[in-house]
Design a protein around this nucleic acid. Structure first.
Length: 804
DNA sequence: ATAGGGTTAG
């Protein structure tokens, strides 16, 4: 009796208890019966040795219970205790795993385990296993499953076909997706939506629209939330506002009975579409009308404002979001806010965002991390950027590109090449954006060999037809002195944008080819390209460098009257530069007085520079007073003012300005010149003796100077004496950096070669005279690219006509 | 459904 009741208790415990209890009971019971030599009924034994079907149903129920509550690890624990799980148990767990990206890999693992344990998958298994493949973009596994389903004769299964379709779309195998769709005997809305997502994924706008029309006309299916969510990003990408608006109208007209979650999705997609089409007001209106929002909604709106350049408003939205607590904060919105900081040059806010990023535990997010890196670089804090880069646990090509670009933006172009090498050593592939950042490093250094290597690199990688790459290349060739190659790149470009035209015009300007610049501008107009503000900056400064004063004035007039553009400060700088270089100093002064904007330092500095060249001390003094009134903002102005005094022999006053400068804490960036010989760069500062061939270089330079003195050259004392302190630092201004670089160039290149030297500041007047002489006595063409333009010295003359 | 790095001007 006692035994029977014990057995019954055990049986009931095994039926109701957890897996562990049950299994222990199942193990113990036979022993118990054996030991007591008792007879037991057949049911009891069966219950103990082979868990009966009703037990499995129990397991199933508790497994599903765990899954429903999202307790995946408990579900897995239970699953592992089932001695031999059946296909339903596998299906339930695979299904749960496949619903999230982070567990998709476990889903596929379980699927493989199932095959290994010889549990046959059924038609419920495949769609979920395929979903895991989609999430992981595991094409290989997806194809294997596809074959498996064909073997089992499941071609006609709607769910499997739809899952296959989705898998091929996500794995970017568009032909396979089309094939699956075409061979489906029946298609439901989910299948049509999956196919639409495929078109959207590949940016196939027209095919997507045809598909949508066919879906409604032939299959008589009405778009649902998924349809709209697939369609809207495509419209956003195409920027087709009219179509977007009609989709919006459809949403309202069709009275879609959407679930709350679907309303968030559709609303977010709608507002994103409006923002990407430039309609921020509508985006905002959709946002305001939404009954519920999530973090994606917020970041879509903030990102939209950033995209349209409305940084201040983007920022205040971000603050509104924070005011609601941290519940909507996401790495995405932080990344957008950081971009706004970078543009607004708001470092303090950027630092606060850095703290927020660290605090909200999303610092591991690369997107936001890269934005932060870039923000520091743009704020000029390259060392901060480097430190942050080093701290990143995972770095991708965007991180490397941001750092590389940071070096270039901060004038450390040589180091950009080191980053480029390092990223390749770490097997991180440079992409288009990386190269668009690297090529300007060559432009900056005027390193033609490096530039050509980069050109080769982009050809090999297949980037050479990208507009942005070509723009960078044509700028690079122009700045490396090869305006001919620049034009070649320009002519061969598959498509040009406004930057291409502007860069080419600027290139001509740099080379003093004002006529060519004007011709190109006219060609641009004829081809129906609308010039922008930058175009006129390039064009007017091209006129300025070529002495085309009348033409420059004409284009300034055209800009406002014909093209309806409002001149910005930069345009006024160009105009003052144009007038004052041409010697119309008083006209320039009057022009500044008549400006509708308050002239800033740069405008006055353009006039001040000319006062120095034309030795107009009175005006120079008046201008420098104006600069004084504006406050100490620039560095170069004091140098200019001091130069005016010393050029006129008023050294006391020159020194006085220098003292003021020193007191106010201005630093002059040191003059530096460099030359590329056989693909490597050799840089010199004034009085430099660090070069290995230094003694030879000085000997060569002394020989040259002795030679040209015989031809009547006298050092221009106004340049030599203008700065006593600099003189001490640089030993003597006879050994200005550009002279050293040219002497080295003469020593290390063959006699018929053109010498090409780059200087970070402007070439001084004394050097200008000396270089003209060198070109004559050594019969060499010498090109000097300084901070302003190109100087081509040939047979004792300079292309700039001495108005540098 | 959102999202990071990049080209022209002195």
């Amino acid at each position: 009796m006692r035994h029977r009741s014990l057995a019954a208790a055990a049986a009931s415990a095994s039926a109701s208890g957890s897996g562990t209890i049950r299994r222990n009971v199942a193990l113990l019971l036979p022993l118990f019966y054996q030991r007591h030599h008792r007879r037991f009924s057949f049911t009891t034994v069966a219950c103990c040795l082979h868990p009966p079907p009703f037990e499995s149903t129990e397991d199933q129920a508790s497994l599903q219970g765990h899954i429903a509550r999202g307790e995946l690890s408990r579900a897995r624990h239970l699953f592992d205790e089932i001695p031999s799980p059946d296909v339903r148990a596998y299906n339930d767990l695979i299904r749960a795993y496949s619903s999230s990206l982070s567990t998709a890999i476990d889903g596929l693992y379980l699927y493989r385990l199932m095959l290994r344990h010889r549990v046959a998958p059924n038609n419920y298994t495949f769609p979920f296993a395929l979903k895991a493949c989609s999430a992981l973009a595991d094409l290989h596994c997806g194809r294997t499953i596809h074959r498996h389903t064909l073997h089992m004769g499941l071609h006609a299964d709607l769910f499997i076909s739809t899952a296959l379709l989705d898998m091929y779309v996500k794995c970017s195998c568009f032909p396979d997706a089309t094939h699956v769709f075409a061979t489906m005997p029946t298609r439901d809305l989910v299948a049509w939506n999956a196919m639409l997502a495929g078109y959207a994924h590949h940016g196939m706008y027209h095919d997507a629209l045809t598909h949508l029309v066919t879906m409604q006309a032939q299959a008589r299916l009405r778009p649902n939330a998924s349809t709209l969510v697939a369609l809207l990003p495509l419209l956003a990408q195409q920027g087709v506002l009219a179509q977007g608006t009609s989709v919006h109208a459809y949403c309202i007209r069709a009275c879609l009975h959407l679930k709350v979650t679907d309303r968030v999705l559709v609303g977010t997609a709608l507002l994103d579409m409006y923002a990407k089409c430039g309609s921020l007001a509508y985006a905002r209106r959709v946002f305001d009308a939404m009954p519920m929002r999530n973090e994606v909604t917020w970041s879509a709106l903030i990102g939209g404002f950033v995209l349209c350049g409305r940084m201040t408003q983007a920022f205040s939205l971000f603050k509104d979001m924070l005011a609601l607590g941290l519940c909507f904060l996401s790495p995405t919105s932080i990344a957008s806010a950081l971009r706004a900081c970078a543009v607004l040059d708001d470092l303090r806010m950027g630092e606060q965002l850095h703290a927020l990023l660290a605090k909200s535990c999303v610092h591991a997010d690369l997107t936001a991390g890269n934005s932060l890196l870039s923000m520091y670089a743009k704020a000029g804090l390259i060392d901060q950027a480097i430190a942050f880069f080093d701290e990143l646990a995972v770095k991708d090509n965007v991180s490397y590109s941001a750092l590389l670009s940071g070096y270039v933006q901060n004038g450390r172009a040589e180091e950009a090449f080191l980053v480029f090498k390092k990223m390749q050593a770490c097997n991180v592939e440079p992409d288009v954006a990386t190269m668009v950042s690297l090529i300007p490093a060559c432009s900056h250094l005027a390193a033609l060999q490096h530039g050509r290597c980069s050109h080769g690199f982009v050809i090999i990688r297949g980037f050479a037809s990208e507009t942005s790459i070509c723009n960078a290349l044509l700028d690079m060739y122009a700045k490396c002195g090869r305006i001919d190659l620049s034009r070649q790149v320009f002519n061969m470009m598959p498509s040009r944008d406004i930057v291409s035209w502007n860069t080419m015009i600027a290139g001509y300007g740099l080379h003093g080819l004002g006529k060519e610049a004007t011709a190109l501008f006219l060609e641009m107009s004829n081809q129906g390209f609308a010039p922008d503000g930058v175009t006129f900056i390039c064009l007017i400064s091209a006129c300025s460098h070529s002495g085309l004063v009348t033409e420059g004035k004409h284009w300034f007039h055209e800009m406002t009257h014909r093209y309806g553009l409002t001149p910005r400060m930069e345009h006024y700088i160009c105009m003052v530069d144009l007038l004052s270089r041409g010697g119309f100093l008083n006209e320039a002064y009057e022009f500044i007085q008549s400006m509708p904007l308050r002239a800033d330092v740069r405008v006055w500095a353009a006039l001040l520079g000319a006062c120095r060249v034309y030795k107009n001390i009175d005006l120079g003094k008046r201008v420098s007073r104006m600069i004084e009134e504006l406050g100490p903002e620039g560095t170069g102005n004091f140098v200019l003012l001091s130069n005016i005094y010393s050029a006129a022999g008023r050294f006391d006053e020159a020194a006085e300005v220098r003292i003021i400068q020193k007191v106010k804490g201005f630093k002059k960036s040191p003059g530096c010149s460099w030359i590329e010989i056989n693909g490597s760069l050799h840089a010199f500062v004034g009085g430099d003796q660090s070069h290995p061939q230094s003694p030879k270089i000085y000997q060569e330079l002394d020989n040259i100077l002795a030679g040209i003195k015989k031809l009547g050259y006298h050092p221009d004392t106004s340049f030599v004496l203008h700065d006593v302190e600099e003189e001490e630092k640089e030993k003597t201004l006879i050994y200005h950096s550009e002279k050293l670089a040219i002497a080295y160039g003469i020593l290390s290149t063959s006699e018929n070669k053109t010498i090409f030297v780059t200087k970070n500041l402007r070439v001084c007047g004394d050097c200008h005279t000396v270089i003209k002489h060198i070109s004559l006595v050594r019969r060499r063409d010498i090109i000097v690219r300084d901070a302003n333009r190109f100087h081509h010295f040939k047979n004792g003359q300079c292309s700039c006509g001495d108005f540098w």
